[in-house]
Nucleic acid binder design. Structure first.
Lengths: 256, 256
DNA sequence: TTCTCAATTTCGTGG
DNA sequence: CCACGAAGTTGAGAA
């Protein structure tokens, strides 16, 4: 299955050997140690010595994490080229990228840990964005926005853009529906207004509905002025609509 | 100094114990194993079983990496709350966040590796953006743009915005200098033009210099029409100016 | 290759 | 707390 090598407190030379083997075998390398980091490229950065987690993936991506914060402090994308050597009592790892030309140098002066892993992962990742969730839930059950709505078409192209959903209400009026995942601003109102005005030129009466969890103050003013409608809907409720399996976890069970 | 625990092929129960200890002791946890991942929140995602690297930092940030690609496949920011338990032969780790309400569930059905590390990192990170690099290099050696230039002030506030550098040329004329890290477009020319026009209303003759590696076609036309100047300068050259230590690395030394 | 645009964008800063 | 803008933005899809 998955072969594995893990070294605790390796010497610089042991780590260098494992590094070269790992890179050539396209393994994942996880190196933890005290290092400084220098970056030159589109920008330039410096970070003095401290303990960090350095990961090199099997496609050549480099990711360097400090013990805190979500984002890596430095990185290099897939396809980067590597060079490593021991010099003046330090293990130096350099990642190089052409176009744009960029280089990262990691200088380890001590190593806590090195893992060289052969991982298998062939699953396909499926992501549904908030607006996709809202639209899906709305199409499944339009009454979460207004009773009697019927969806006529989705992703309808018009000159002024792409209408999320075109509907007919219980009185037979056309309704343009625009979804926003988070608090909608003036731009969203203007977008909806454009769609509505374009359809109104075709003669029929047209309603415009902005579906979002909330509105900014200016958007609220503008939506009234333009005689459009705001329909409150949260992503959370949409997820509930889509998940018939109602799984619940008590928040009190979580530890900070 | 830094205490450390590393387990190879731990049982689910061993891993669970190490997890709880690590989280309460604010250590960094690195867990490698075969898992599936479910995310609910602003969006929704699913990823079937495969080998991944799961990192929990000492501030509660969660980062999940596949063996390839720069970006994590799933994550949860600092301050997240954790819950872990063994159920149906799986180790389940859940990360929870309020506001926005989001949850990630990682279901491990086998574990390759778990490290629990106490890392020290108090260094301060310094990042210089491309435009900062250009400005720094220019202030250090203005002749890289034009001989005889003298910098009068930087980040000078005027009504129309923020002038990067205000200079005087070898003939005593005022020169407004605007930096762009990459190919400059019409907007950059307009910005520079605004500054120059504002200063010209004060009576004196004013030059306008757009310093960038290149210009778009329309920007080139416009800059001539407005009688402004384009000065070619790349970030790469600026880095060379700033680095008196002329370190060179042969590209041929890098391995893909 | 280049661009255009969305992102669970993140992350700052100013009001 | 919210609105606005930049980022070493990254990444995907189209021209």
């Amino acid at each position: 299955m998955s072969s594995k090598i893990a070294l605790e407190n390796p010497s610089l030379e042991e780590a260098l050997e494992a590094f070269k083997l790992g890179v050539s075998a396209r393994r994942i390398l996880i190196i933890v140690g005290e290092c400084r980091i220098d970056y030159f490229g589109r920008g330039h950065s410096e970070l003095d010595y401290g303990d960090r987690v350095v990961t090199i993936k099997n496609d050549g991506a480099l990711i360097i994490h400090r013990p805190f914060s979500l984002e890596p402090v430095n990185w290099q994308p897939s396809g980067s080229m590597y060079r490593a050597y021991v010099k003046n009592g330090s293990l130096i790892v350099e990642a190089y990228r052409r176009r744009p030309e960029e280089k990262i140098r990691v200088t380890f002066r001590s190593l806590l840990f090195l893992a060289s892993l052969n991982l298998r992962d062939y699953a396909s990742f499926k992501l549904y964005t908030s607006e996709e969730i809202m639209k899906k839930a709305f199409i499944k059950r339009p009454e979460i926005v207004e009773k009697g709505l019927r969806v006529v078409s989705e992703e309808k192209k018009v000159r002024s853009g792409l209408i999320d959903c075109l509907c007919v209400d219980s009185n037979g009026k056309i309704a343009v529906v625009e979804f926003k995942k988070s608090r909608a601003g003036v731009d969203a109102v203007e977008q909806l207004s454009n769609y509505v005005q374009e359809l109104r030129t075709r003669g029929s009466e047209v309603r415009g509905m902005l579906v979002a969890p909330s509105l900014t103050r200016e958007a609220g003013d503008k939506i009234k002025a333009l005689n459009l409608e705001f329909k409150r809907l949260s992503v959370k409720k949409c997820i509930k609509v889509l998940e018939s399996t109602g799984e619940t976890t008590k928040i009190s069970d979580f530890t900070s």
